[in-house]
Design a protein around this nucleic acid. Structure first.
Length: 765
DNA sequence: AGATGTACCATTTTT
DNA sequence: TGGTACATCT
């Protein structure tokens, strides 16, 4: 039976459906049975998801606790929670709206003992995983040079992504004469004795839980009457199997599952996402309804046209035809340049030019294939004084001082957490050498106890040297005190005490490296972040699951980030530099995954173009400095896949005759013929060479060299300087060619020294 | 323990 | 080229 949702039923918010187009509306209304919403870029899929969820609730089809809505990222989860909360007019706390990992953690905590864990298990991060694997490899006498822990972990994680527990790894996957499998087995045993699991386990154990416990399977099948999944194209095998167990009845009937996704935006294959899941949806869930959202509300016509034509080159897709009622807008600009430096200068100039025409820096982004590519743009932006932010740098919770602090807290919560013990026992330095460590590890292993307990036992013997004995006794006494205060003291106060009494704060205070003050700041920030949680336990949960970066600056900034990080975002103006063979598409991707790899790269290109609302500027260079040697670069094949009617091509003056076969016509479509682009990868004609003589033509006459020709002055800390954009200020810090200046306007900025003049010369500037 | 030397390597990254 | 992980020296 179909429930027709109409605004008149129950307490349905009357305007909820009114703003939806017919496709969106039908995706909301098809409440029962399996539904796949194929939502292209910028078609409002989140809106559909939230409206549908609210509609189910407000029509009384289910209570909040009978609905599960899953996302991949915390950001998406938060957005979902906020929107649903706004639609239904109450908070969504405690509801099953969240990331796969957070929901799975909740479920696993309830049934931890069924997989041999205690309820308070810890979740290891990559660092701990690697250390653990390395220990195992060393114990097995494996040469960690030839078989790095990283590689072994990658294989194990892949197995976990596919749903293989150690006993279920198929014979075909077992290589290296079974070494990896053996390590996997030992690794899992060790995790269990540590009362810990890794990120992969959170999902894998949930699958195992449902597979091996009929009662639980029935309980959760009964409980979750509606499941909504965002970004379905990103699900891996475990997530898929888990969802399928929940959503298929024993006789193969699909229940009420609604997945939203876009096969053209599947860009996480390399990390286990299985695009086949979305392509196979109809077979998996018999009777599935497929609804396509094809009206794009984001981009202008040419941008959409270029992106659609590009993605049409992919074979593995279900196919959608995006359209828009927006104007044609600007054509996608394809700009060829001499080298990376002129590319950066070009982007910088365009940024300034758009800014002059009134566009906010917040609406501009530079999207690169790989993180290292941001560097030349950063340098340029520093030079010309364009504020920018880089998304995806080191995360707050990955910083050393934060991880140390958290290790202290972990061992207080979970005494058998040996990895935390190892991390902190000699930080700050307590004079523990490898010999003492060896004693402790051996005793722990022989008696199958945690290292902390091993220390306790050994203190009752005379195993330790007198000095060590006192040190360890002091440590244990402190530790016991902290544990005792766990109940009484607020967790923020406890943390402060721990960091103070352990000498950790003192350690950084004594440190005279320039980043020591920052680290102390970070520790303060950690404590203030903690205050938002009720207790230590819930904060620790947050730590392992939510690795968020706390951004502060509220100033207008250009965004620099990888294409991956840009998924789900949009900007008025998008720069897409580095569209060259071997860089984009990335060589490794093609080498390792062939056609599949190429298609994923193409989807990445598609994601990139479709981030743009009004302007997309693609660029490529003829000469690229790669790992210190100059390389002739060939325009990406993706450029030649863009249709002529949607693009306009430009080449930097001085390019002709230098670029050889790779030269472009100054207008019309690609002068890079497909056969040419194709052959480049096959016959690695991608030769390293010496730096070609750079033509002395500047890109924009009279502008480009403006800055570089300014004389550089010898500055010292404390000098008063003047900057063209930021005005007067005082030098805080010298850092090679860069300086940190606190400007009188209030901001502290890091800029190139050559871009300021002494205060006394301000008038001549 | 801290400093210096050297060999190696080099996507995408969330949870 | 430049960062880093590990080894060896002081």
């Amino acid at each position: 039976m179909q429930h027709a949702l109409t605004p008149t039923q129950s307490d349905f918010e009357p305007n909820m459906l009114s703003g939806l187009n017919p496709a969106q509306r039908s995706a909301v209304e098809a409440v029962n049975g399996p539904v796949l919403v194929l939502a292209g870029a910028g078609t409002g899929k989140t809106r559909v998801l939230t409206t549908r969820l609210a509609a189910i609730l407000l029509n009384g089809l289910a209570s909040p606790f009978q609905i599960m809505a899953v996302t991949f990222t915390n950001k998406a989860a938060r957005e979902l929670q906020e929107r649903v909360s706004a639609l239904v007019g109450r908070p969504t706390e405690g509801w099953f709206l969240g990331t796969f990992h957070s929901l799975c953690t909740r479920i696993l905590r309830k049934h931890a003992e069924r997989v041999g864990l205690k309820q308070n298990f810890t979740i290891l991060d990559t660092d701990d995983q690697l250390r653990l694997i390395k220990q195992i490899l060393e114990a097995e006498n494996v040469d960690t040079k030839r078989t790095p822990a990283r590689a072994v972990l990658a294989v194990i994680e892949r197995w976990k992504d596919r749903g293989y527990t150690p006993d279920k790894v198929p014979a075909t996957e077992v290589t290296q004469s079974g070494l990896y499998l053996k390590v996997y087995q030992i690794y899992q045993e060790r995790l269990r004795t540590l009362n810990a699991c890794d990120f992969g386990d959170l999902l894998l154990y949930n699958l195992v839980l449902l597979q091996n416990n009929l009662d639980l399977l029935q309980e959760y099948q009964h409980r979750f009457r509606y499941i909504l999944v965002d970004e379905y194209q990103d699900t891996n095998v475990v997530q898929y199997l888990w969802l399928r167990l929940l959503m298929l009845t024993p006789d193969g009937q699909a229940r009420n599952i609604c997945c939203v996704g876009d096969e053209d935006q599947s860009i996480y294959g390399w990390r286990g996402a299985e695009i086949g899941n979305i392509l196979r949806f109809e077979q998996d869930f018999p009777g599935a309804k497929i609804i396509r959202l094809e009206e794009n509300y984001r981009s202008t016509g040419h941008i959409l046209g270029a992106a659609s034509a590009l993605i049409a080159h992919n074979r593995d897709r279900l196919g959608k035809t995006l359209w828009t009622t927006a104007s044609e807008g600007d054509r996608v600009r394809v700009q060829s340049l001499w080298d990376g430096e002129s590319e950066a200068r070009f982007v910088g100039d365009e940024v300034e030019s758009f800014q002059r025409r009134g566009m906010s820096l917040n609406h501009m982004a530079v999207l690169v294939r790989a993180g290292f590519q941001t560097r030349e743009f950063e340098e340029r932006f520093l030079k010309i004084g364009v504020p920018y932010r880089v998304i995806g740098g080191p995360r707050f919770y990955e910083r050393q001082e934060i991880r140390d602090a958290i290790a202290y807290l972990r061992i207080i919560l979970v005494p058998e957490d040996d990895l935390a013990f190892e991390r902190i026992i000699n930080v700050p330095k307590r004079g523990l050498g490898p010999a003492t460590m060896q004693q402790i590890t051996t005793h722990a292993r022989v008696n199958k106890i945690g290292m902390l307990e091993a220390v306790r036992q050994l203190l009752n013997t005379d195993a330790f040297k007198p000095k060590m004995r006192t040190t360890l006794q002091t440590f244990i006494r402190l530790y016991d005190m902290w544990c005792a205060q766990l109940q009484d003291l607020p967790h923020t106060d406890l943390t402060e005490r721990v960091l103070e009494e352990s000498g950790y704060i003192a350690m950084w205070q004594a440190e005279k490296t320039p980043d020591a003050p920052t680290r102390l700041e970070n520790l303060k920030e950690l404590i203030s972040a903690m205050s938002e949680f009720d207790n230590l336990q819930s904060f620790m949960e947050h730590v392992s699951l939510v690795m968020e970066k706390t951004s502060s600056a509220e100033q207008e900034q250009v965004t620099l980030m990888t294409l991956h990080a840009a998924k789900g975002l949009e900007f008025d103006l998008v720069f897409l530099p580095g569209w060259e063979e071997e860089i984009f598409p990335s060589r490794r991707s093609l080498e390792e995954n062939g056609m599949k790899g190429l298609e994923e790269e193409r989807r990445l290109a598609y994601v990139g173009i479709t981030r743009a609302r009004k302007h997309a500027i693609i660029s490529n260079v003829a000469n690229r400095l790669v790992y210190g040697s100059w390389t002739n670069a060939i325009p990406s094949r993706f450029i030649s896949e863009l249709p002529a009617q949607h693009i306009e091509t430009h080449a930097e003056a001085g390019m002709f005759g230098t670029m050889n076969r790779a030269s472009f016509n100054s207008r019309g479509t690609s002068a890079a013929p497909a056969e040419f682009a194709q052959s480049s990868v096959m016959s690695s004609s991608f030769g390293k060479s010496h730096y070609p003589a750079r033509p002395k033509t500047s890109f924009i006459e009279g502008r480009a060299e403006r800055i570089e020709d300014e004389p550089t002055y010898k500055f010292r800390k404390g000098d008063r300087v003047f900057h063209q954009k930021f005005g007067y200020g005082t030098i805080e810090l010298m850092d090679g060619p860069k300086i940190e200046v606190t400007f009188d306007m209030g901001d502290t900025k890091k800029i190139m020294a050559e871009f300021v003049v002494p205060e006394s010369l301000a008038g001549e500037f």
